[in-house]
Design a protein around this nucleic acid. Sequence first.
DNA 1: TTAATCCTGATCATTTTACTCGGCTTTATC
DNA 2: GATAAAGCCGAGTAAAATGATCAGGATTAA
Lengths: 138, 138
Amino acid sequence: MKVSAKGEYGVRAMAILALEFHEGPLPLRVIAERENISLQFLEQIFLPLRRAGLIESVRGAKGGYLLAKSPDQIRVGDILRVLEGPIAPVECVGKGSGKVCDRSDACLTRGIWERLRDSMSEVLNDITLADVINMSAD
Amino acid sequence: MKVSAKGEYGVRAMAILALEFHEGPLPLRVIAERENISLQFLEQIFLPLRRAGLIESVRGAKGGYLLAKSPDQIRVGDILRVLEGPIAPVECVGKGSGKVCDRSDACLTRGIWERLRDSMSEVLNDITLADVINMSAD
DNA sequence: TTAATCCTGATCATTTTACTCGGCTTTATC
DNA sequence: GATAAAGCCGAGTAAAATGATCAGGATTAA
């Protein structure tokens, strides 16, 4: 029941972009050094984030990445959904995953996973990047 | 952010033991057939559950397994903790895992994972096997 | 022109997962 | 006492996921 490194690094990196929201584009190299993450792995993570419209890129020298929206408009859940797929403890209660098991009415445990999913979603949809950088500012 | 098959099967199997709480010991073969799970995989799952004191076994012919406590005394979280380790979205906030990262105060994202962990624990500690079999009885 | 940076598909080693195998021990029943 | 049903348990294994790395191209500021 763990977040993948991809998801964890993604959230960390996005938090840094949020800190630097008013500066120009931030190159991945800086984030990679600061967080001790492989540059090439970070590139892999930023690709889907950009395609999902959470960040924007500036190519060429002096280029880098910046948030596509203000920090209070980006929820941690948004980031994780892009990097890890639907937030759900089991496939069969994943919204938008399409895969529902055939015996959902006979399933004793479905209710558990639905409650867990809702609780997880609620937390992750409630925390924005603005919250993240404020939490640690205290 | 998924529960493993081990965890999922474990909860399903325990729910069935809860349904049969007043009958004698239930052999794994029955659960395996009912839930379409490999018998030998189930055996692997039941071993740690027994060692953790959640179930008791009766050996020999007419043997099987039964809950060690009444269904309302066994929480879904108890089962998952045995089968999957501490309930935590990242290692470094796992209670009892011992591994805390060295820069926990500098970590921007720790607060997220703590909130998520608490919310997950709360749900899973709140649902007992008695709840599970009642949910679907409605 | 050069260097910095993003862009992207491919590949790869390791770990984890979800099982399977084989064989032993215990016990009710015939 | 023989047999069959069941639990006990360490070891092995194939496939998938994970966490990267590689290689090279495209874009742009200086």
